[in-house]
Design a protein around this nucleic acid. Structure first.
Lengths: 192, 192
DNA sequence: ATTATTTTAAAATTACCATTTTAGAAAGGG
DNA sequence: CCCTTTCTAAAATGGTAATTTTAAAATAAT
């Protein structure tokens, strides 16, 4: 047989993920991925197959780590209002002021013209968030299943818009107020 | 003196705008812009200066035509609820099912890492929408100026999120329901 | 220790991109 | 009618992209 891989795949995917989050798929060149991961292009191609494949793996890694952790940290076993507010506010306070970027938002926009190399992961990421929002909402005492499903999508729309406006340079304090209003009215409406 | 321009600048900007909306700045190569506009690269460079300049001009054109027309068509002299609903729903029904894309959304995301060649136009486009939303909301009988300003940003966040989710392939009927709920609660809240 | 096999690094390849240059065609003032 | 200016088209340039190939280093079973 032969030797083992010399690098930690998880660490490489995390680095690649960071590059894609910050600069998008197209602007992240192989050269930048070499610098970000510490691997040479030869190793990257040998280990993953190509840029598309690296992106796909990094995207899956994003869903499994960033998205799921975010859901777990803020929503799991917490009252809906408190958890959702904390989750949305946390988007404002990301290291670098949200400048890391959301792979879901970025990819939905970047690949709107054609197919995304991680199409399934994109859909899956959206579904993860939507289900988590829905689960949080149905836990409310006065919850209605059908309405929770619709409001979960509404929160997802709001979530994506928030990330766009953060990237667009909107004022953080203003957005904080907007988050409070949005969540209050959605939950207030359910309880009404 | 010398001869005149042989093409219609407005028509060229409209074509370039369409290309940028559909494929973004980076993916719209000069070759594609040649095909879209019918001009050769020589003429494009001679007339506009370069890709950045074409983008900037196309962006300004987008604000002046698409954004302003949209505001005028749906919000001018109409009750807030009716106008805003019509405006947001119209995003779903764009030719190609919203696949043309919004230059504001796309650019905010595409240029989040660095500077946008049309930075001022990007800010201006956001401001146009935000002011229009605000104006629509302050016209409500029970309006409060401060709250209207905040709710206008909230609508802008929602607007951007909607465009992301349209590009991300969300179900149109579901989004229609979400739009109705969002506008109803914002306006209901003001009247309450 | 040898050898087969894989990893790695670096150079080579191929393609495309933005831009410039060059050469030629088309005005409009004199 | 001519000649300068500006427009257009096409080829040329320089850079960078993704990927492949080549060669060397490393490893693990025999």
């Amino acid at each position: 047989m032969a030797r083992h891989l010399e690098f930690d795949e998880d660490a490489v995917l995390t680095s690649a993920m960071r590059a894609f989050r910050k600069d998008g798929y197209q602007r992240s060149s192989i050269k930048m991925l070499e610098q970000a991961t510490g691997l040479s292009s030869g190793s990257l191609y040998n280990s993953f197959g190509g840029k598309d494949a690296i992106f796909q793996r990094a995207f899956a890694h994003y869903n499994e780590t960033v998205v799921k952790r975010r859901i777990d940290t803020y929503l799991a076993g917490r009252p809906a209002k408190e958890g959702l507010t904390a989750l949305f506010v946390s988007l404002l306070d990301e290291p670098g002021g949200g400048s890391v970027g959301c792979l879901l938002t970025n990819s939905a926009v970047e690949f709107a013209g054609g197919p995304c190399p991680a199409e399934a992961d994109l859909k899956h990421g959206f579904a993860l968030l939507r289900s988590a929002f829905e689960e949080s909402l149905v836990s409310l005492p006065a919850a209605n299943a059908e309405r929770a499903a619709s409001d979960a999508l509404r929160l997802l729309v709001f979530y994506q818009g928030l990330l766009v406006m953060i990237r667009g340079g909107a004022d953080k304090a203003d957005l904080r107020k907007v988050i409070a209003h949005e969540i209050e009215t959605i939950i207030g409406d359910i309880n009404a």
